[in-house]
């Protein structure tokens, strides 16, 4: 398994938008994919097709509207369209180690626009889930997602303080140091009464909620097996 080093991931989070200039026009180079010829192998694609929204990617006609629509296009390694092609090419490692789906902020622009009706953000959710399941979790977003879910499912409600703590615990102290200026934000939030230090009460029906979750996951597994 290829592990993207944390440095690289952090570096890629810096927008490098349209740095190159040609006359009045700007362009942004996309990540070069590979120099040697590639083969088409649909084995991996078939695995992805089986995900909840995975089969939609078959419909992509390479129009490239998603590329442009993405709020985070400046930092995304492969635009959704290319990611779908990579899946069809069988480039599993490139796909799962890319920052594409982790960069997705679920703003729905691509989903609302996609002329082929592909619910792109939902596919990105599937890929996040798939990546987490297969241990491709080196991007900070993965830790954040996991922290969010753990916090939420253990309480029935979200406690930001708890989630942030969980996140930094996973990511380690380095990350806190890098985020020291966050301190200012935290303090002003506290000052303005927007950051309760104590978590909200757990919901009364937490037991039921947990049952719902485990049943839902069970049904999902059953369906996937079919």
């Amino acid at each position: 398994m290829v592990t993207p080093d944390k440095e690289r991931a952090a570096e890629q989070a810096v927008p490098h938008s349209f740095k190159k200039k040609r006359g009045d026009n700007y362009f942004m180079e996309q990540k070069k994919i590979f120099s040697e010829p590639v083969k088409y192998d649909l084995t991996f694609a078939r695995e992805i097709y089986r995900l909840e929204n995975g089969s939609y990617i078959k419909q992509c006609m390479n129009c490239g509207l998603c590329t442009v629509s993405c709020a985070t296009r400046d930092v995304m390694e492969y635009p959704p369209r290319q990611l779908f092609n990579l899946i069809k090419l069988g480039k599993k490692e490139e796909v799962l180690t890319s920052n594409t789906f982790w960069s997705c902020t679920s703003c729905c622009t691509c989903k609302a626009r996609c002329p082929r009706g592909i619910p792109i953000i939902d596919v990105m959710h599937d890929l996040k889930k798939y990546a987490i399941e297969y241990g491709y979790t080196d991007y900070p977003q993965a830790a954040f997602y996991k922290a969010f879910w753990t916090e939420m499912s253990s309480r029935g409600k979200m406690f930001e303080g708890g989630m942030t703590a969980r996140y930094f615990l996973t990511r380690g102290l380095d990350e806190i140091v890098k985020a020291m200026d966050m301190k200012d934000v935290g303090i002003s939030m506290l000052k303005h009464g927007r950051m309760p230090l104590l978590p909200p009460k757990k919901i009364k029906g937490l037991g039921g909620l947990k049952k719902i979750i485990s049943k839902a996951q069970e049904l999902d597994r059953k369906e996937a097996a079919r």
Partner: peptide
């Protein structure tokens, strides 16, 4: 209860 926002589905899937 919390709706899960757009984050939960990235961990447990859309259906859940």
């Amino acid at each position: 209860n919390c709706c899960g926002a757009s984050v939960a589905s990235g961990v447990v899937g859309d259906f859940t």
